[in-house]
Design a protein around this nucleic acid. Sequence first.
DNA 1: CGGCAAATTGAGGAATGTCAAACTGTGTGG
DNA 2: CCACACAGTTTGACATTCCTCAATTTGCCG
Lengths: 227, 227
Amino acid sequence: MYVTFSTEYHRFNSIGSAVPAVVPSKSGPVRTIRSGAYLYREGDEVMHVYEVIEGVLRLTRLLEDGRRQVIAFGYPGDIVGFPSNGRHHTDCDALTEAKVRPYCSSALEDGTNNPHLQRALLEAAFQEISAMQDHFMMLGRKSASEKLASFLLTLCERAGNGLDCDDRITLPMSRADIADFLGLTTETISRTFGQLRKAGILRVEHIYTVVILRPDALRTTARGDDA
Amino acid sequence: MYVTFSTEYHRFNSIGSAVPAVVPSKSGPVRTIRSGAYLYREGDEVMHVYEVIEGVLRLTRLLEDGRRQVIAFGYPGDIVGFPSNGRHHTDCDALTEAKVRPYCSSALEDGTNNPHLQRALLEAAFQEISAMQDHFMMLGRKSASEKLASFLLTLCERAGNGLDCDDRITLPMSRADIADFLGLTTETISRTFGQLRKAGILRVEHIYTVVILRPDALRTTARGDDA
DNA sequence: CGGCAAATTGAGGAATGTCAAACTGTGTGG
DNA sequence: CCACACAGTTTGACATTCCTCAATTTGCCG
């Protein structure tokens, strides 16, 4: 099993957006998803919205020709599965064994019955929109090193308060996932990790474990104040 | 004055997302915004959420070093100004004279009083999230010509049923706006327009007016099935 | 008609992508 | 327990797309 990530409030560069825990009323029993299993797929009718309790989910979208975009990573505290026209618009699978709390989406139809849930979801959706706006800037206007540095910093914030010490980041996703999240290729991710390593900014302890040696330098890189 | 764009239901490549008209209760009087004037700025406390009635708004975000990302264009039927932590996270100004209908955001706090408004906003937010997911794919994984073609097609859908005939698109935004929306430069936009023109796919009748000569070819280009 | 901002065009360069090869680590079966 | 196999990662050489900078051109408004 993987580390358990903290369920903290969060507002930053979109790896999904965390929100204060949704009110428990109308939630189903916690559901466990094996690593690699799908929670839902694009086009599925939306029956539930899910709060991630533990583990990490991956939301992806595909183009007909196979190009892929990772839309977000769902960390504990995130809400995933927002419907649009009653359907899911991404695939969602688990990068690690994960636990989610389902909220029946039909409860939304009759908002009068469930103002608290509705309010919480609205807040979650707003957070998500804000996080996605950050990600736009990232995808559209940042260089490879800025993207990777920003991404690592965001992971630090989200995952940093778990079992890991503050500057040791566990990456539950592959290089390809990072690439598809940042709009780059795996080769570029790999080379950019190499640059950060050579600059003494981080150490790749293990493929899935990165230690941030110079957090300030990483922040500088993320802003593009250097090179 | 500019053309009036239709207020139609819509779900596509994010230029903002249209939603069925929000219930009129708790809405303020329609407000008119001069071309170029700001509706709100990043960091402002959110007092209202707005439904675009007429005209076109521009939502932008800036990086400290001046890099800009156009987050969305707000067309009639779109809801703009979703709060996150009670604040606006983009600037919003008008590309044309515009009319908006404000909805008091405090009405959201006491959801019990206004389930219909809350429900409508939730739906709008979901639409927005879906549209933004499309835009992710666009920013992260599409080439310049695919981006521009997709963008024009989306405008067609949104603006095509207004005063203009179906394949004549009025662009209320500058080349720089398009570039900042698509994550490109004005030069690339210009050159890409040139390519589409040379390919006989469209005619640039006027800087702000484009006629689509071969819609199918444009769709093909948008998907990247060519070249 | 002149002036200015926006758009276009051109030449050259930088960043990232592509393709191929080598490497690493992990799990499996002998 | 070791060797092998495989998937994922890294590295290298090269290609391509898009960007940058500069020069023109266009369109708009006084």
